[in-house]
Design a protein around this nucleic acid. Sequence first.
DNA 1: CGCTTTGTTGAAAAGAGTCAAAGATCGTGG
DNA 2: CCACGATCTTTGACTCTTTTCAACAAAGCG
Lengths: 267, 267
Amino acid sequence: MSGAGIGGLDMHAWLVRRLERGGHLEEVDRHALFALPLQRRFVAARTDLDGGQGLHLILSGLACRYETEPGGFRRIVSLYFPGDLCGSGSLFSFGRPGSVKTLSAGEVADISIHALHSLVEAHRGVERSLGWLTLIELGIAQRWLVNAGRDAERQIAHLLCEIVTRLRATGCRECEAFATGIRQAVIADITAISLVHVNRVLHALQDADRIRLVKGVITIPDLDRLAAFADFDPGYLHLPDQVGPSQLELGLLRGPSFPDGRNSVAL
Amino acid sequence: MSGAGIGGLDMHAWLVRRLERGGHLEEVDRHALFALPLQRRFVAARTDLDGGQGLHLILSGLACRYETEPGGFRRIVSLYFPGDLCGSGSLFSFGRPGSVKTLSAGEVADISIHALHSLVEAHRGVERSLGWLTLIELGIAQRWLVNAGRDAERQIAHLLCEIVTRLRATGCRECEAFATGIRQAVIADITAISLVHVNRVLHALQDADRIRLVKGVITIPDLDRLAAFADFDPGYLHLPDQVGPSQLELGLLRGPSFPDGRNSVAL
DNA sequence: CGCTTTGTTGAAAAGAGTCAAAGATCGTGG
DNA sequence: CCACGATCTTTGACTCTTTTCAACAAAGCG
């Protein structure tokens, strides 16, 4: 039961692969990363991840950073997919505002702030890579800002493109994301469009044959077409080379098995 | 003739002060920063700053990062005040999307990517501080995302609070920002609210006695009251301790003098 | 098999965008 | 010193997207 939602790689390898995209990891850095203590655990949907101060590596499932408004509304400001690092982000003296919670059941690997500090102190390349991840998250946030100025249909279409693209890069099947973590309410909380209208817009997108909507599960028959409609250009995500079908066929996609043997959702 | 829009400090001191907020600068780091070659220059309003690849330290005036949409609209995703660093952000292999341009005339100090790389290589504390600046910019972007979900009146009020607060932290008089860099069109491009509606909302805010609007210049009679209305909490800006009246009286606020002797706008 | 969560619909109201045009302001050059 | 042109601001009238309110249907889970 490897429970590897992220492709059969063990979690350290996944961590290395994530940070390596910064392009600056030395062999010693990689070794140190493999030696980093990771606390693996299962988490239910809608659970706050941020009890402590460390970072969390998402192994399977979906998480988000959100803030709760005075009115009680939840505003999601970041999405985290398998392979992403999230947390209070405190390499510095202050934590980040908001909280991190799961959107679906899944697995995470916790990195203690302690271990992280030692690692970073000894390995500059790792610190640099972490900074690079922050820069990417900034790029995404700013892309969302740009997006926020457009009509609901394009905005939601763009979001769907991003989700599918990031999901593909993890090696997971896209449909399952929509089946589990991405409720319409989540789309509403990200885009600040009312839930009712999200629903209507999704149906409009379906009527235009841009997405398919079956029992609440969204599928995208032609990503390029949707991307063209939404002006989606994946450059800002800085993903590694597309995961080819080869990887998709390698049985990478099994969902996590829960300790009790119950087999849960894939994403 | 110092032309110090940012408080009589020379530009190196200003740079150090900025990075120091990360809290990790050693004495050697500071020395290295003072030795960093800074190319000071005057820039007109509406000028692209990003010819090269380096960073720019704003000395006076206002700048922004923006992206141009397919439709031709400009969406501003970041504001830069005196003392802020901006640029392509490339400590890494890729640049940031979008461009940086000035919103008002002012002065900047250019840091070549070359000098920056050497500096950062030799001084970890500096690199860390830069990462910290990125994290702050991320926090601001995400705050803007949260903000984007609220009604226009609160959204604009919140933006005004942020502008005044950041401006005060630079030691500049707030009103002058509104007089020069912050056109209503800028507010529109940040908030994605139509220019016409921005105008109406500003008048509504004035009618509610939350701001004052004289000849297109916005003043805020009571920041606390406006902040309460907008749910503005400056924590996310991570500003240093408030600039006291003492600093405001020290003649810090003279605007830059242009080479031709013409005295330009203060901010 | 009842309960909770999610998805779907309709009708009415409000907020915001668009279009079009007229005042203001400011820098500039004559 | 004044006039001109470019940039900004302000207004009115109209349209339309999006929200809100209020139910109801479906699906998943214990």
